[in-house]
Design a protein around this nucleic acid. Structure first.
Lengths: 206, 206
DNA sequence: CAATAATTCAATAGGTCTATAGAATTCCGC
DNA sequence: GCGGAATTCTATAGACCTATTGAATTATTG
């Protein structure tokens, strides 16, 4: 309700607000929303617990903002990939690369979005839901176009395919977050190859 | 330390202990480990909060037991599938069927194992780790055998493949838990087809 | 540098949670 | 139905957590 938050223009505020979101993302990612304490979030950004409430109205709002932050530019990036004029295989590779790179860069916030958003109240979730299901829909229509263009088998279930891409991406995303040695590019290639060609040997083409 | 727990033989105890594990699994699945309260777990099984401590030494022990319960027979079932004499494609289908069916049957405990086990202390996690990585290893060697037998391309990264199967299975498992209308068998078929043949159209075989 | 605004703080109210202790109740063989 | 064991209960200590309040501090601007 207070317009304090809207009174930006102060660079310090913006900077600290971002630090607060990042700290919250980090703690939520480590301990989960319910396991996290505002004290720890504040400590991780170097202020006292009560000061956090200068940037968040409540712990729940912090979660909502972390989730939004995690999705920032995420759907846009996918849309750009989907509208680029490229062979489908290259697009799919870009999708995996972008998905996995997002985990590596903003890993915590995205992880929080995936794992903790369900603890948000209904109304806060609807805003996210649009963004999130937007992601799946863009992916789905990318597959549909590829089927129409003959780049994919015409019996492909595009809804299934989109879910599968997200599932694989998130599964590897989690592993990537935990193990910094894993190579994003290599994994993206393998995911793409698996989805396109499968693991079965090529039939004899004589 | 107390031997009270070991003094079984009382059918009532076994029955209530199981009910306690199931109630804990249910609440942990809904709210996460940290979001769950012993009060709610007790309520969901129809007793008072303090009575729960007759069955669990602590909330943490409850989590450990739920996770173990979630993995029960899980690796065994996979091992049976892997050692059966069947075509690889049939085995892979069985793997997905078993994985998804496990989610549907004991969905809560398995979900808890996947999502909440990281909140267990080191020592409690090692026991689970053996079981869990056993699962991946059985899967991995199943792929290795298939490669050796020529049922799969010889450039398949079996570690990657095993992780992918688990990732896809868990992703769909989560969806299955939330939407009872989804058809396990149909999804298992699509997963198998995707992994084996990919989505790309078959090359012309003229 | 004075005044004003922005940011951070200490202190705490009020709530919930885990786990324990010991009393009350239920169950069961006899 | 009696007596002891098994199970469940009430009550509560002690810890932690969120959010508020109003004061203290720091930054900014004229």
């Amino acid at each position: 309700m207070t317009e304090v938050m809207a009174a930006q223009a102060h660079p310090r505020y913006e900077q600290q607000k971002l630090a607060a979101i990042r700290a919250a993302a980090s703690v939520f990612a480590d301990l989960g929303y319910h396991g996290a304490s505002t004290k720890l979030i504040a400590e991780r950004m170097g202020i006292k617990q009560a000061s956090l409430y200068y940037y968040f109205k409540s712990k729940q709002q912090a979660l909502a903002e972390v989730c939004l932050y995690g999705l920032e530019n995420y759907v846009e990036r996918l849309t750009m990939i989907a509208t680029a004029r490229q062979p489908f295989a290259a697009q799919l590779l870009s999708v995996f690369n972008a998905h996995l790179a997002a985990y590596r860069e903003k890993n915590e916030a995205l992880k929080v979005y995936n794992d903790e958003r369900l603890y948000l109240p209904e109304d806060a979730r609807t805003e996210l839901k649009e963004l999130g299901s937007g992601y799946r829909q863009v992916l789905e229509s990318l597959f549909e176009k590829a089927v129409a263009a003959g780049d994919l088998r015409d019996d492909v279930d595009c809804h299934f395919a989109a879910q599968a891409v997200i599932g694989i991406g998130n599964a590897w995303g989690d592993l990537i977050v935990r193990d910094r040695d894993l190579d994003v590019v290599s994994i993206a290639h393998k995911c793409t190859d698996m989805l396109l060609n499968g693991f079965a040997p090529l039939p004899e083409t004589h």
